[in-house]
């Protein structure tokens, strides 16, 4: 009984993983996220609401509007940084501690572009 349950669950798991992979391969490639899109600090500052929350960290601009409800801490911790350059806040979570590597790993998911005018980009030099 336990053996059968193990085999069935393992097979179903790999089938589900395979399903996600096949679906990904068949789905149209999403339009290139405006990775290289440039935003100024003024533009950033306009997105300073809980439901429209952008931040700049280490030269990149992130849209955390959908992430905000998932953040482990109280909203009051993260909200004040919406619309701002938040590198220091990110690197000093509490008592000078940086965020975990998992947090760093989450960042690309929310990246929408770079900070700075177009003519400041390195490729433009």
């Amino acid at each position: 009984m336990m053996r059968k349950l193990f085999i069935a669950a393992t097979l179903l798991f790999w089938l589900a993983v395979l399903g996600f992979w096949v679906t990904d391969a068949w789905l149209p490639v999403p339009p290139a996220v405006a990775v290289e899109k440039r935003y100024t600090l003024q533009e950033l500052a306009r997105h300073n609401q809980p439901n429209d929350c952008w931040m700049a960290i280490d030269g990149m601009v992130y849209d955390f509007s959908t992430y905000l409800p998932q953040h482990p801490s109280e909203p009051s911790v993260m909200l004040p940084w919406c619309g701002k350059e938040a590198t220091q806040a990110f690197l000093t979570k509490t008592k000078g501690r940086p965020h975990s590597s998992y947090a760093s790993q989450l960042l690309p998911t929310y990246r929408i572009g770079r900070l700075g005018a177009v003519d400041e980009s390195p490729s433009g030099n």
Partner: peptide
């Protein structure tokens, strides 16, 4: 799998990105 479904609901491409080890880091 639940993480992948959560990603899927946000954007279908996120589901596989959540699972594929080469899109992730060592943790």
């Amino acid at each position: 799998l639940a993480l992948a479904v959560d990603g899927w609901l946000e954007a279908p491409q996120l589901a596989w990105q959540t699972l594929a080890p080469w899109t992730q880091s060592w943790p």
